[in-house]
Amino acid sequence: MLLKIYPENPNPKDIIYVTEELRKGAVVIYPTDTVYGIGCDINNSKAVERVARLKNINLKKEHLSFICYDLSHISDYTKSLSNNTFKIMKRNLPGPFTFILNANSNVPKLFKNNKKTVGIRIPDNNIIRDLVKELGNPILSTSVIDEDDIIEYTTDPELIYEKFSKHVDIVIDGGYGNNTPSTIVNCTNGDLEIIRQGKGELEH
């Protein structure tokens, strides 16, 4: 289904409905502050595997990300951060960044690649953050990527729905998306290294 939710003030009934579907194993396409994302409840292994099949990815090799509600969620899934890393994350989040951090044992085994790291996102978007808050744990995040460079697929939710309606359970129409992905910052070695420059300009 295609579900319209307004990002300025998401309807709580819609948020609760989508959350209940996520708990049942739904795969959902949702807006962020960058490109539209495909995701599910990180604790539902069947849903995670559906996302992996849809994107044709190997869960053990890919860097998949979690969307968290705020920084208080992060310590549940990552090893202790340096003061410098925490301060920079606090200054830049919510925002269009993916921070690669060392994962702890709470991260579902499905996600642990050979480096035992996890990407953390806190997008500046009320819809997806409200979903995470209502769900009570992070949502898997992987971007909607075009097979054919037609940019509209990643920006227009109605075109996204046309393309993915047979593969996902809900497409959330939160308005036009962006076609620039997040900036990826590696924090696993204590220093910060920008792996991919995307929409966000990191403030040190």
Rank of each mutant, 00 (worst) to 15 (best):
I38V: 11
G25T: 04
K24P: 03
N92R: 02
P12L: 12
Y153T: 12
K55R: 13
D173N: 08
V48N: 01
Y17V: 01
Q197Y: 11
A47D: 07
S165V: 05
N125A: 07
Y77C: 01
H73A: 12
Y36W: 04
N137Q: 14
R121N: 06
R196Y: 13
G25R: 02
I88Q: 02
E147Y: 12
E21K: 13
I184P: 00
K90Y: 11
I150A: 13
D149K: 14
L3W: 06
V35S: 03
E158D: 13
I38E: 10
G136Y: 07
L159P: 00
D156N: 15
S75A: 12
N179K: 09
F99R: 00
E21H: 05
R53N: 15
S80K: 14
S80Q: 14
R196A: 11
I74W: 04
G190T: 05
G174R: 02
K61W: 09
L2Q: 06
N9C: 10
I150M: 15
D33N: 02
L140E: 05
K166N: 15
S65Y: 06
V18L: 09
E134M: 13
D70F: 07
I194T: 07
Y77V: 01
K13D: 14
G119V: 03
Y153W: 11
N9L: 13
E49W: 09
R53C: 13
S82G: 12
P7I: 06
G37E: 09
L54Q: 06
N113K: 10
I170H: 05
S65C: 09
D70A: 06
L159I: 14
V35D: 06
I29K: 00
R53I: 07
T32N: 08
N44M: 05
G198P: 01
A103N: 04
L81H: 03
R129A: 05
T32E: 13
L131E: 08
S75Q: 14
F66M: 02
I194R: 04
S141N: 09
K112G: 02
E203L: 15
D130T: 09
